[in-house]
């Protein structure tokens, strides 16, 4: 057999061995990575039902959902009017209040500052909404960022009213 041909076949054999070996290494590494992802029991707890019958207008309750606080505020008519009156031009992250609160009386919002994850304080700051004590972000009564380092409005989780008094988050 000519020298060259032998070499070629040998190279193919080694390449195949390396390639198959690499696939195996990948297949072994994946479980070791995936084990750190949320497990089945965590995923199953992804929704929470909250009874809001006792919340009066002008009050906020905070509930825990996926380990994070969710603010549920029953807004007064004045607050709703104020939230709706803001012009989109003033906003760093323009979003209509109607898009954030399906039922204008209820604002359901992830109580996590979009800057670095602290929990903002209720009814503080320059816009009658929330104020994050960590790095001074001001949010309005619709949870929209108005001043400070946070890049976006506070997040609205997926939720729905199961009945008039019960909100299901997630």
């Amino acid at each position: 057999m000519p020298e060259k041909e032998t070499k070629k076949r040998r190279d193919f054999l080694f390449t195949a061995t390396y390639a198959v070996g690499a696939v195996g290494v990948g297949a072994v590494v994946w479980p070791m990575i995936d084990q750190m992802n949320p497990d089945a029991s965590v995923k199953a707890l992804a929704s929470t039902e909250v009874d809001v019958s006792t919340v009066n207008p002008g009050n906020t309750i905070t509930v825990l959902w996926r380990g994070k606080p969710v603010f549920i505020r029953r807004r007064t008519q004045d607050e709703i009017a104020e939230a709706k009156s803001v012009s989109m031009k003033e906003l760093k992250h323009p979003e209509k209040d109607e898009d954030r609160a399906k039922n204008p009386e209820w604002l359901v919002m992830l109580g996590v500052c979009t800057h670095l994850g602290c929990v903002p304080l209720d009814q503080k700051g320059d816009y009658n909404g929330w104020f994050c004590p960590c790095h001074g972000s001001h949010y309005d009564i619709s949870g929209r960022i108005r001043k400070g380092p946070a890049p976006t409005n506070m997040e609205i989780p997926e939720y729905k009213f199961v009945d008039a008094n019960t909100i299901k988050i997630g």
């Binding site: 479980p31 070791m32 995936d34 084990q35 992802n37 497990d39 089945a40 029991s41 965590v42």
Partner: peptide, 13 residues
Amino acid sequence: EHIMRDVNYGWLI
């Protein structure tokens, strides 16, 4: 048992 049931690939590991 949690590892065996719920953790991703926990039973394998």
